[in-house]
Nucleic acid binder design. Structure first.
Length: 251
DNA sequence: AGCACA
């Protein structure tokens, strides 16, 4: 019964490679541009846990491959199992544990030893520009730009009765099989959205509006399916600085 | 196919 997915080399622990916080992915579509590839990988894998880094290179020897570094092995394992053969840019991903420890992990470990790459004499006076960009989002959060029909109280200025009393007229949320997605990074592609939303039943299509970056419409077969996808992906961290905000599209 | 840290 247990069909052994002997996917010709796409193994993992069966390969003699032991679990690692980093997963190694190959069979990636080599046409995808690096930056987009990394963002999409981040989008698709961050559901399994905190991602420390996504690495991919375009050198001949390394194209079609990427490394995703998780914070813990459990996340990596879950990602490996759940996303094995996941159709990504039209090709099923092949995932294994990485063979060696990632630098970012070794650095946290204290076990990092710089490999010989370029003799930069001794230590390089590397500046610690701790530019921790916390919540630098000056307009990205669910604040001012929030969709009027979103959860929570709408701004007083947008009450239906212009200059009326301070009575909060709750906006009625009308379910719709089409979702309205906001706060996307401006370089989000329909493909990235498709990969996220197609995980939920009834997915039909994701469309973006050329003229308006940052928003998208995602259509499902019915309202129930749309609702399930909405709650699953609400506030999904699609990038370091972007939480997706999802509401029903207006009818 | 291909396991790196630009």
């Amino acid at each position: 019964m247990s069909g052994e997915a002997a996917v010709g080399g796409g193994g993992g622990e069966a390969n003699g490679v032991q679990p690692n916080v980093t997963i190694y992915i190959n069979n990636l579509n080599e046409k995808t541009k690096l930056e987009e590839l990394k963002k999409s990988l981040n989008a698709v894998f961050s559901q399994f846990g905190k991602i420390l880094e996504v690495l991919a290179f375009k050198t001949l020897k390394h194209k079609g491959q990427a490394w995703v570094v998780f914070e813990d092995v459990a996340s990596a394992t879950e990602a490996l199992k759940r996303m094995q053969d996941f159709p990504f840019y039209d090709k099923p991903m092949k995932i294994q544990y990485a063979k060696t420890k990632s630098d970012v992990v070794a650095k946290a470990d204290g076990t990092f030893v710089p490999r010989e790459r370029r003799k930069r004499t001794d230590e390089k006076p590397e500046k610690k520009q701790k530019r921790e960009q916390h919540h630098d989002v000056s307009q990205g959060t669910l604040g001012m730009n929030a969709y009027p029909g979103a959860y929570g109280a709408p701004p007083l200025s947008q009450l239906p009765f212009g200059g009326g009393p301070k009575v909060m007229m709750p906006e009625i949320i009308v379910p719709n099989n089409i979702l309205f997605v906001q706060n996307l990074p401006h370089d989000t592609t329909p493909m990235m959205l498709q990969m996220l939303f197609c995980q939920y039943q009834g997915f039909k299509e994701a469309r973006m509006i050329e003229a308006k970056p940052g928003i998208a419409f995602v259509e499902y077969g019915d309202e129930g399916q749309a609702t399930a996808a909405m709650s699953a992906l609400q506030n999904f961290k699609i990038s370091k600085d972007n939480l997706m905000l999802i509401t029903y599209a207006k009818k």
